[in-house]
Amino acid sequence: MNPSPESTAPGHPPFDPPIDATYTLEIVAELTGVTTRQILYYQESGLIAPVAGTFDAPAFDDETVRALRRLEHLRECYGVNDSGLRLLLNLSEEVERLRRDLRHYQQLR
């Protein structure tokens, strides 16, 4: 597991996030508090996608961890159903992509 970042005091190593870390289904369940069954269901519905592994033993990355938490947040706090989750996920991904493009073009002359 990752060491917890604690202090700026000398002697405390900085938090060093692993690059391209992947997690098993069980670890993701532990990290997010979402049951493995629910994660597999999200995967089956196409709301999240594994970065490696097989369908039954998928490997996920930090972006999936974030996506799962966002999905659970929308479901718990706003009562969004599956179609709504799909819609919101796609929309926010598209907005993020368009904003990134916009920033790129704004920086060019």
Binding site: S4, T8, H12, P14, F15, P17, R100
Partner: peptide, 22 residues
């Protein structure tokens, strides 16, 4: 809470760094 975070070489614009427990 104060902490230090390493930004890895090659961090791209929009990339997210997950800091557990903070």
């Amino acid at each position: 809470r104060n902490f230090r975070v390493r930004i890895a070489a090659g961090a791209t614009d929009g990339q997210r760094i997950r800091v557990p427990g903070q």
